[in-house]
Amino acid sequence: MLTMLAKLLKILNSEDSPAAVGWAISLAFVFALLPLFSLAKWLVLVAVLLLRVNLSAFLLFSAVFAVLAWLFDPLLNDFGMWLLTLPALKDFWIAVSQSSVGGALALNNTLALAALLLSVLVLLPLYWIGVKLIYWYRSHIKSRIEKWRVVAVIKSSKIYQIYHSLNA
């Protein structure tokens, strides 16, 4: 728990741009939400590696959002099932799922479809919220948290020193 907190603080206090951390948070959400058999999940991973996204933040938030995704699994399934069984959209889903892209994205799957739609919907808002939160943290909270005893302990620990020196 302490390690996780330390990582979070490290990310928040890093000199990385808030945009890099913001993208990491939103892409971690998308990555965690999508199932293994959707090509989109692997495209997100490639994007994270190639683009200047904060990797530590991505890994941390992927783990956090994976728990959330597991909890929201039933809701996503219900939403996906509702969409896929809408009579008005039947022909559209048939056409989409029979296309090569639709097949690769597994769009006839309740979870893959719902997760992809939700990801598209929340990607930019989550990025924007993430950036705003980083700005707000760095201008209002950072100085106060650095005075916490636990932070002082972490910063004085040998592991942190090594970690810091490696990143320097």
Binding site: W93, S97, Q98
Partner: peptide
Amino acid sequence: KPTPRTGIDVNLT
């Protein structure tokens, strides 16, 4: 009922 993280493949055709 789907198993966790698998969803259901809907038979559209």
